[in-house]
Design a protein around this nucleic acid. Structure first.
Length: 259
DNA sequence: ATGACAATCAGAGATTGA
């Protein structure tokens, strides 16, 4: 079973490009971020016509996450618990049943710039809530997957120009520490189980020829609980998507699970 | 040090992103 995460940077502007990639890659499940759309404006019928069930958690203009799934999805929950005043649409989770159940969460973690500042504090508070919620989800002992745009460059090898990201919210020590705390709960960064060293990125800025120069960063991640890691067959980044017509600035990251 | 590029809402230009 192939599951992908893809920050689409606006579903309305990207519908054609997304359909094209779905035809090529044939993922069973796609977790989308930055749909930048209200639920009612999401072009759900076109994806249903291509065989996907659609679940959305949108908001106007900003943020917004969604699930496309060839399998029926159960027990869908929207919003990251822990702050009733947080109205930003950044979290969606659901279960599919393959050979066994899989619980998966699609997330769009706050960018946090400029740091320091209120946006960075929101990012850290959000990561603290995510850590708490991950602990709760792990108690079910069902294979668990946390995938999305983490807005975290885990280590310097995950950027072509790490010096450009010093003092940025994507690399600041407090933010990286929260990412490590997630790993310490037992999660694995799936990509690093199948890929090594420099040069592997999931985001390239639109500006200054970043893609042509492979000046990228790896910020879209798939974290697997121990039981999900035991199902892992492969994890790769579809970087060539960045070179297509009218691309998002992110590309898909996917796992193949024996599920 | 700044801006470069793109999407959104709106209907110009500000806001946000990373």
């Amino acid at each position: 079973m192939k599951l992908a995460t893809f920050n689409i940077n606006g579903i309305k502007a990207r519908t054609e490009a997304l359909i094209s990639w779905l035809k090529d890659a044939s993922p069973d499940i796609v977790l989308l971020q930055e749909i930048k759309s209200l639920d009612d404006n999401f072009p759900r019928v076109i994806f249903e016509d291509h065989g996907y069930n659609v679940e959305t958690h949108g908001q106007k203009s900003y943020n917004g996450v969604a699930i496309l799934s060839k399998l029926p999805v159960e027990d869908v929950k929207c919003g990251l618990p822990g702050d009733p005043d947080d109205d930003q649409a950044r979290w969606i989770e659901a279960t599919v049943i393959g050979k066994q159940p899989l619980r998966f969460c699609g997330l769009y973690l706050p960018n946090g710039n400029p740091a320091p500042g209120p946006k960075y504090q929101y990012k850290l508070a959000w990561m603290d809530r995510m850590l708490t919620h991950a602990r709760v989800l792990l108690k079910d002992e069902v294979p668990l997957l946390l995938a999305g745009d983490y807005n975290i460059i885990p280590q310097d090898e995950d950027a072509q120009q790490p010096k450009d990201w010093v003092d940025d919210a994507l690399t600041k020590p407090d933010a990286r520490a929260y990412f490590r705390r997630l790993l310490h709960l037992g999660f694995s960064d799936a990509f690093r189980l199948y890929n090594y060293g420099n040069g592997h990125y999931s985001f390239w800025d639109y500006q200054a020829g970043a893609w042509q120069n492979n000046n990228g960063i790896r910020i879209d991640h798939i974290l697997l609980s121990p039981q999900a890691t035991d199902l892992l067959l492969d994890c790769q980044i579809d970087s060539e998507v960045r070179g297509r017509e009218k691309p998002s600035d992110h590309v898909p990251v996917w796992v193949d699970l024996d599920l």
